[in-house]
Every structure is written in structure tokens, then in C-alpha cells.
Design a protein around this nucleic acid. Structure first.
Lengths: 255, 255
DNA sequence: CGTTACCTTGAATCTCCTCAATACACGTGG
DNA sequence: CCACGTGTATTGAGGAGATTCAAGGTAACG
């Protein structure tokens, strides 16, 4: 890994208007008021596309934009000088990127595209007027931040306390459910576009050990996962193995 | 460990008025506008005290209150069924507790008092009016959530990638700096009121191994730490060992 | 048809865990 | 005042688990 950083290419042509945003159709999102919808529509200045492997936001850099993922997967990670890296979280459609650079001046981690990605682009200098004029949207953003804190805490518990098999089960089940929540999975199947190296860098084990543990898990027949195709054969057992990860709450907000 | 959950005992007598809040004197906090100060003063309905070891907020419980720490230390943690537990973060004076229960309906982790603690108490049903009427305060809360996400990400990197010595160095240096930021440390000394068991549950190692690694680190003479008294002898070296943890940003907000 | 990315497996080594025992400081009650 | 229990810190020994090094395999792509 991987490709070099590439500047966002804003595509003003063929931009999805927020009024027809496919994510807003999902029952897991609340409805906007007409005023909020108008504000968000004006807040969005375009879309940006990144190819798999490209850097969306670089660590320690400021960014003039806030993004939401419209389509595709991204990965948030931090690297140490010697090449070790830790994946912090994944971003799926509907997730917010760049809040740190908006709030804390610069990114404290990098964000890379995991698949080809389309993002909605919002200029961060208008974030303040969002807080001033649309407390409901401000509340949503805070809600999202609180929820991500909760996800990070769950990852921390997993990495700090659980065995290799438990961590793998936890991660795959969590990602499967997040994919399902935004309509990217049916009953038992989803595309989870990670390599085993991503998996290893998320759960805090070496690639070799991750592979061996994964092989054992697969032999147990609880799920299959190859070529990014994940199929869940026995959710109850995987749920057991994962140490009972919390169900996703019904999310209140959108952006 | 430890004492049973105890209901908050609101002490309306001898409550510190926000106008004289010792934390607001610190240069690391921004100043309130007079209107904000008036709002916060009314938002605060009292203070609560907890003794060391008591539970401030229980996992999976809702809470009608939001708290800020006025004095003392608290610890946020999650426990598994079999007794393993992971410490998520620590709360020092100025830190916010219970945002999860306010935003996500219930706590996803527990909060225990590490020392005797005094908290400012805010009723969460008035949080919405804060967002409506004081976007500056709403922005502050979001800022705090973003910063804690950043801290959790750093912990995750530490637990996922670093050696025992690095994790210990990272945690102690981080806590020393956070204590210093709120006036709880002088040049090189601070009270860090953790046991080695807390340390172990934070860095994700067994108590025994943590003790052995700590002993080695102490023999290196970079710091001393006994009876909760932490003395930093060689900050540059500890900083090296800790893998260059980020300096604390100047925090914008208060509550 | 060679290169690249990803996955898989074995072997040797070292880290970390569990079990077990000891030590010290503290507070309590006899 | 001493005996005792409890919480915390320390150390040793043996074994499970994770890492690194190394080699080989497959599929995709020019």
C-alpha cells in the first residue's frame, strides 16, 4: 500500500441534489425540515471522487472541507514512523469525514479510500452558520461524534481485551451490520472490501497470526469471506464469539 | 474493586457559582460571553459528590444529567461478562461526563470515581435549549466530543501497535500533561491517582506483566511513580518512549 | 508471461499470560 | 496492643500465544 495523495476533484456536473439523496430514503435517518433541507442543499458545494487507495485526508493536515460519504468505503488510520499502523475506524455511506480538521484545526489521522468513493463536499467555513441557524443540524453532528466515540470505545475494548478469534468476529459482525444499516447487505450477505492486512491492522495482530486465526474461524463454518464477499451462516454464534457487540442504535441524524 | 453504585447526592448548599469557577481562570479555556455565562449559571442545577470507587454513571443506564468534573479524577470503562475490563479514558477537572446518555439515550460504558470527586450537574432536558439559544456553547460541546475521539484514537494506536513499555510511557505522559493543563502539576510532578491495576486495564496487559514492564521502565530512571506521586525526570526521553504523543491543543471550550 | 498484490503455511523465537507465593501498608475489632 | 483481613505491589516458573522470517501459491493485469 498505497497510492499517493491526490487532490479532491470536485465534480459540479452530475451532482446528486440533496432532495434526491439516496441515503435520506433510508428509514434509519430522520427527516429534515424544509428549511434544513434548503440549508444543506446550499451547504453542499459539490462532490469529490477518489479511487481506491487514494488519500482523502492526510494526517496532520488541515482541510477546508467537511465530507460525507455518498458511496464507497473509506478507512481512517494512523501510522507510526517505523511503518506500523493502526486502523481507527471505517467510513461507510452516510458517515462524516473531516470533523477533526474542522474542529481541531488539523487531522489527527489519515483517511484513505478503500474502494472508489464519492463524497459530498461541504466548506468548513460555513459550519459556524450551521450551528447558528440550524441547531437541529448542529445537534445531529454532535450526535454523530458521540456515536463514533462509542464505536471507538468498542474497538478499544476489543483490541485491549479480546482474543484473536473474538476480535475478528467482532470486526466482521460490526462491519456487516453497518453495511446492512445503509442498505449494502441483504439478509446474510455483504461486500466487505477489506484485505486481511486491513483486518490485521484493525485488530492489532500481525498479518500472519490474523490469517491463521481467520482460517480457524472459517473452518468453524460460521461465516465465509473471500474475494470481499462475506456470507453470514450463523449470526447467533458469530454474535457469541464477538462478545455481544451492541446493536446499532437508530441514528437520529444525517449530516 | 469496588463500591456499589450510589445515587448522586446533589448538594445545593455551598455550590461554586460559575462566575467564580476555578476552571474558567485557566488560560486554556476561552472566555464566555456574559449571556453564555448567565445561561450556564442557570443550566447548572447543583453539584454532586462521589467518594473514590463509587459509580457515577452505570453502563447501559440512562441518566437525566450531564456532568462536568469540578474536582477529582474519574475513570471510564467497559467490563466483559468474565471480569475482564478495559479502561476507555480518564476524566479530569473540566472534562464532560454523560454526553453519551444525553445523545444516545444510554451509557455505553461505566464511569467510576477514581478519587473523591465533585461534579457540576446539568439536566439533560435543557441541552436542546443550549443548542437553540447558544450555538457557541453547542460548538464547544461538539469540540469536546471531537477531541475525545482524538484521544480514544491515540489510545487505540497505543493498545493496537505498541510494546508494553511504550504503552506505559504513553499513558503516564498523557495523563501528566492533562493534569498539567488544568493546574494539577507543576514543572515535573503530579499526583496520578491510579493503581497498577488501572494501568494494566488501560494498556491491555495483565497486571503481572504490567508490573514487570513498569519496573524496567523505572530502573531506566526516566520517571518515578509511587504512592500516586509521579515525578518526571527526563521528559524528552519519555516522549521518545511514548512514540511522540501529540501535545494537547489549546482547548477552545468549557462546557 | 512476468510483475504485483494478496493469501497461506511452517519453524524458531520471544512476549505475555496464568498460577503461585511473598511482602507491605492499612484499618478494624478483639 | 496485637491479630486479622484487605488491597496493592512484587517476583519466579512454566506454558500458551503472537511475532518474525521464510517460502510458496494463486489470481489479476500489463
Amino acid at each position: 500500500m498505497t497510492a499517493k495523495a491526490t487532490p479532491a476533484r470536485a465534480t459540479r456536473a452530475r451532482v446528486t441534489p440533496c432532495t434526491h439523496c439516496p441515503l435520506r430514503q433510508l428509514k434509519s435517518y430522520r427527516e429534515f425540515t424544509p428549511e434544513e433541507l434548503r440549508f444543506v442543499e446550499a451547504f453542499k458545494v459539490g462532490e469529490a471522487r477518489f479511487r481506491a487507495g487514494e488519500t482523502i485526508l492526510a494526517e496532520n493536515e488541515p482541510s477546508p472541507y467537511l465530507y460525507t460519504v455518498l458511496d464507497g468505503w473509506a478507512v481512517k488510520h494512523k501510522s507510526l514512523e517505523d511503518g506500523r499502523r493502526q486502523i481507527i475506524n471505517y467510513a461507510l455511506p452516510g458517515d462524516l469525514l473531516g470533523l477533526q480538521s474542522a474542529m481541531l484545526e488539523r487531522m489527527r489521522h489519515a483517511v484513505d479510500a478503500l474502494t472508489d468513493v464519492t463524497l459530498c463536499v461541504f466548506p468548513k467555513e460555513r459550519l459556524w452558520s450551521l450551528f447558528e441557524k440550524h441547531p437541529g443540524l448542529a445537534f445531529d453532528i454532535t450526535w454523530i461524534a458521540a456515536e463514533e466515540k462509542s464505536i471507538l470505545a468498542d474497538f478499544l475494548v476489543s483490541v485491549g481485551q479480546r482474543s484473536a478469534a473474538e476480535r475478528i468476529a467482532f470486526l466482521l459482525l460490526t462491519l456487516f451490520r453497518r453495511a446492512a444499516r445503509v442498505g449494502l447487505a441483504d439478509e446474510s450477505r455483504a461486500v466487505l472490501p477489506l484485505t486481511q492486512e486491513h483486518l490485521a491492522d484493525t485488530i492489532g495482530f500481525s498479518l500472519v497470526h490474523t490469517n491463521k486465526s481467520l482460517t480457524l474461524l472459517r473452518r468453524a463454518g460460521v461465516f465465509s469471506w473471500s474475494g470481499f464477499e462475506f456470507t453470514l451462516h450463523d449470526e447467533a454464534t458469530l454474535y457469541e464469539m464477538a462478545g455481544h457487540p451492541p446493536g446499532q442504535p437508530v441514528p437520529r441524524p444525517f449530516i
